[in-house]
């Protein structure tokens, strides 16, 4: 990779802070992300350290494990919420062992823009993981596909979801993952126009307000799926 010095260069490289208490994984992540062209500005082993780093370094993206010392429960999640409160412009990806959605909703309850919730094993797919970091940095929401597919596949009774076509369901799932219409069109090989039609139709079928079609639509869709 050729690196040309210039004023635009630091802007192009995303500055990332990693919080992970397992040394091996922390160092592995640093290496992978550095190799992927990201600037790992610092790493932390617990939530306190993380908050100090964020204050000192003002990174673009924070990557944090949920469970960290000292209590090994939700320190990372609490730190993420605090970072969003104190530095709203900082994107945060929470890495979780849980497919359960409780933490996800805590995280999205504020402003879902620039929030990511991915399962830990996702880090192994380096390309996808790096893409997720870029997406949250660009203000999108990123919800792990496995978490979403569990919600979509839940058995339901007398639900309008049963009336959706397969295509509409696929669009719905991608919306729940935080994808934009543009991205959905790319992934499903459709024209953006078709995607818009599908979105309009399924919002009608589910009785969701068109007003939810802004940046909060991911939350609206997830809330619907979780009910």
């Amino acid at each position: 990779m050729s690196v040309t010095a210039g004023p635009a260069e630091p802007k192009a490289r995303l500055r990332v802070v990693i919080a992970e208490d397992t040394v091996l994984l922390r160092e592995g992540l640093r290496r992978v992300l550095t190799d992927a062209g990201l600037d790992v500005a610092g790493t932390a082993a617990d939530a306190d350290q993380l908050l100090k780093l964020v204050q000192a370094l003002s990174p673009d993206v924070v990557l944090t494990d949920i469970r960290m010392p000292p209590t090994q429960t939700t320190e990372g999640l609490q730190a993420a919420l605090e970072i969003r409160r104190r530095w709203p412009g900082t994107a945060v990806i929470v890495v979780s062992q849980h497919v359960e959605t409780e933490h996800l909703f805590e995280l999205l309850a504020g402003d879902p823009r620039g929030i990511g919730y991915v399962l830990k094993e996702r880090v192994a797919d380096i390309a996808q993981f790096t893409a997720a970091i870029h997406r949250v940095a660009a203000g999108e929401s990123v919800i792990d596909p496995q978490v979403v597919s569990r919600l979509v596949a839940r058995p339901r009774r007398n639900s309008p979801l049963e009336t959706l076509t397969e295509r509409e369901l696929a669009v719905l799932a991608l919306m729940a993952e935080g994808r934009s219409n543009q991205a959905i069109a790319l992934q499903l090989y459709m024209s953006p126009k078709t995607v818009e039609t599908h979105v309009g139709n399924l919002f009608g079928k589910l009785g969701l307000l068109p007003a939810a079609q802004d940046h909060r639509r991911v939350l609206a869709v997830l809330t619907y799926l979780r009910r």
């Binding site: 397992t22 994984l25 190799d35 094993e121 192994a124 380096i126």
Partner: peptide, 16 residues
């Protein structure tokens, strides 16, 4: 679990 995640990460790097 952490070891398996680390292993997955290493395998991902090796694959790349």
């Amino acid at each position: 679990q952490q070891r398996l995640v680390t292993l997955s990460l290493a395998l991902g790097m090796a694959r790349d």
